[in-house]
Write a protein that binds this DNA or RNA. Structure first.
Lengths: 317, 317
DNA sequence: TTGTAGGCGTTATCAG
DNA sequence: CTGATAACGCCTACAA
C-alpha cells in the first residue's frame, strides 16, 4: 500500500475504499503513527500557528481580561490544532513578527491593545498579512477589528445611576485622546442628556489607579454635592474608593459608583463594584475567527465586529 | 554558488571564505531572503517552540504572577527565536501536548502550577520529553523543577512581625496538603519558635479570598488578643482585611498583616500589603534555561533550583 | 480508486 | 573551502 493512500486516509479524503481505509486506520492506531507537521507545513505552506501580541507594560496583562482573551481565542483555535504563540511587545517585536510570518512560522497575528503610534498594524497591512485588532484603532486605517460598543457602555452606566435615584451625577473619564476614553464619555453624556440631566460634571483621568484617586479628590473638593459617579475603568475606581472612604462618604449610600471593565479590581474593591462588562471571551473568539478567515483566503474584505456590553450590578451602585 | 554554501553562511559556519561570505550576505540583504523554517525544522528535527501550560481555573492567571512568568521566559526565549506556545489546561491538554511533541511541533514543556493529580508530568517523563515544573510536585517524582524557598518565606514573615513588636502572633495557612501551604506554615512556625514565640495560632484556609475572610472571622472570635498575622497568600489577605475593618481593628496598629506572593491584590489592598515576594521573572527564566538544556541534550540530569524570596514592606505591617 | 514520481526548502555527508 | 547529492516526511498532480 502506498504512502499516497495513507496520506489520503490521514487527511480524510473521501475517495478511498472503505476496506483499505479501515486497514490503514488500524495500522495507524496500532503503530501510534502521527504525521510530522514540519513536513506537512513545508508543502501546505501553513504553520498552523498564530501570534497573540500583547503590550508588555500594560495594566491589561495581569488582569482577568487577558486570561479571558486567551480563553476565548483558544476555544476557536484548539479544536483546529492551531497554536497560539504569545508575544509581549518589545523593541523588536514588529520585525520579529513580520519575519516569522514570512518564514512560514506564523499564519497571522492578533494585536491586542496596541498603543497609538504602533507601526505594526500598518506594517502588516502593507505586507498583506492576516491581522486583527482588539479594538478600533485611533487612526482610521482599513483593518479588521473587534470592539465593544463603548458608547453603549457609557449609556448603561448613566441609566443605572439615574434609575437608582442619583440627581447630581459626575464622571471620571479615561484618556480622552484614546477611543475608549472618548467614546465612554460620549455615550455617558448623551444618555444623561436624554435622561434629563444634561449637566454632567467630568474630570479627566488616564486609566491608572493614581489618576482615579486624584480625580476623585478633585471631584469631592469642587463638587461636594455629587451623589453618583461613572468611572471609566475599574482600576481608576479602585483608586477612587479609598478617597471616598477617607472623606467619610459611604458607597453606595452617599455616592453611587459604576466602573467599567469588570476586571479583577471590581471584585476586590470594597464594596464590590457595579461595572460594565465586555463579553471578552466572545470578542476574542470572534477575533480568532476573523483571522482564520483571512488566512483561509487572501483578500477577505475588511470587517469590524461590535459587541454589546452588559451591566454587572454589585454593591457600589 | 551552491545552496550548501549559502546555508553555511546563514548558519554562521566559520569555514567559509571571507569574500564569498560577503557576497552571499550582500545578496541576502538585497533580496530580503529569509530561510523557510518549516524546511529547516524538517531536517533539524527542532520546532524551536516550547509550550507553557497553565491551569485554566487558576487564580494564578489573571494575576501579575502570570505576566511575570511570561516575561521571564521570554527574555530567554526571544533572543534564541524560540516560540512560546500558550496552552490552558483543558480536557485533552495532556494528549494534545504529547502529540505536539511527537509531531515535532514542540520541543519541550513548562508546566506551571499543575494540580496535584495531573498525569501530565509523569506522562512526559515516561515518554522522555523535556519538561520543567514551576514548583516542587506534591509527590516526589524525578523531575526538574524551579521553586521558591517557601519555608524561608514563612520565616521572613515571622521575623518581620516579631521585629515590629507583635507579641501574640497567628497565621492563616493555605491548603496544608499542598507543598506551598505546608512549607510556608512550617517555615513560619519554626522561625517563630526560634524567636521565642512557640505558641503560634493557626487557622487553615485554602488560598481563596473567601477562605481568608472566613479564617479571619474565626481568628478574631477565638483569639481576640492576636496582634499580628501571617496570611499565606495575598488573595486570602484581601479577603481578610475587610473583616478586620468590619470588626474595627485598624491595620497595622491593632493588627499587623503580612501576605505572600506580592500579587496585584497586595497593591490594591487598603492598606497596601507587606508581603513576601518571589523572584518570579528570574525563576521563569531559569525554567526556560533548564528546559533548553534538556532539549539540547537528552539525558540531562534532573535538577531542582531554589530561589530565595524577599520581603516587600508596605503599610500593613 | 490507487500508485508513481516529483517537489516543498533546508541541512548534512562526502568527495573533490 | 566548496559543491554535488541525498535525505527529511509529506502532499499532489498525473497516470494507470
Amino acid at each position: 500500500m502506498s504512502r499516497a493512500t495513507v496520506s489520503r486516509v490521514v487527511n480524510g479524503v473521501t475517495s478511498v475504499d472503505e476496506n483499505i481505509r479501515q486497514t490503514v486506520e488500524r495500522a495507524i492506531s496500532s503503530t501510534g503513527y502521527l504525521p510530522n507537521l514540519a513536513a506537512r507545513s513545508l508543502v501546505t505552506r501553513r504553520a498552523d500557528a498564530i501570534a497573540l501580541v500583547l503590550p508588555s507594560e500594560s495594566r491589561i496583562v495581569g488582569d482577568p481580561f487577558f486570561t479571558r482573551i486567551v480563553r476565548g481565542v483558544s476555544t476557536v483555535l484548539r479544536p483546529l490544532g492551531v497554536h497560539l504563540v504569545l508575544m509581549m511587545t518589545g523593541a523588536d517585536t514588529g520585525d520579529q513578527v513580520v519575519a516569522d510570518l514570512r518564514q512560514g512560522r506564523l499564519d497571522g497575528v492578533i494585536l491586542v491593545h496596541t498603543y497609538q503610534a504602533d507601526p505594526l498594524p500598518t506594517l502588516l497591512l502593507q505586507s498583506r498579512q492576516p491581522v486583527v485588532l482588539s479594538a478600533r484603532p485611533a487612526e482610521p486605517i482599513p483593518i479588521t477589528y473587534v470592539d465593544v460598543n463603548q458608547t453603549a457602555g457609557g449609556a448603561l452606566a448613566a441609566e443605572h445611576l439615574v434609575a437608582r435615584g442619583c440627581t447630581r451625577v459626575a464622571t471620571i473619564t479615561g484618556s480622552l485622546d484614546r477611543p475608549p476614553g472618548h467614546d465612554r464619555l460620549a455615550g455617558f453624556r448623551d444618555a444623561m442628556a436624554e435622561l434629563g440631566q444634561p449637566d454632567v460634571v467630568s474630570v479627566e483621568g488616564n486609566f491608572t489607579r493614581e489618576s482615579g484617586a486624584a480625580a476623585m479628590e478633585q471631584l469631592i473638593a469642587e463638587y461636594p454635592d455629587v451623589d453618583g459617579v461613572f468611572i471609566a475603568s475599574d482600576l481608576m475606581a479602585e483608586g477612587a474608593l479609598p478617597v471616598l472612604r477617607k472623606h467619610g462618604r459611604r458607597v453606595p449610600d452617599d455616592m453611587a459608583v459604576v466602573g467599567f471593565d469588570d476586571s479583577s479590581a471590581a471584585l476586590s474593591c470594597d464594596p464590590p463594584l457595579t461595572t460594565v462588562r465586555q463579553p471578552v471571551e466572545d470578542m476574542a473568539a470572534e477575533m480568532a475567527r476573523q483571522l482564520l478567515r483571512q488566512i483561509d483566503r487572501v483578500d477577505t474584505p475588511i470587517r469590524s465586529v461590535i459587541f454589546e456590553p452588559i451591566l454587572v450590578v454589585r454593591q457600589s451602585a
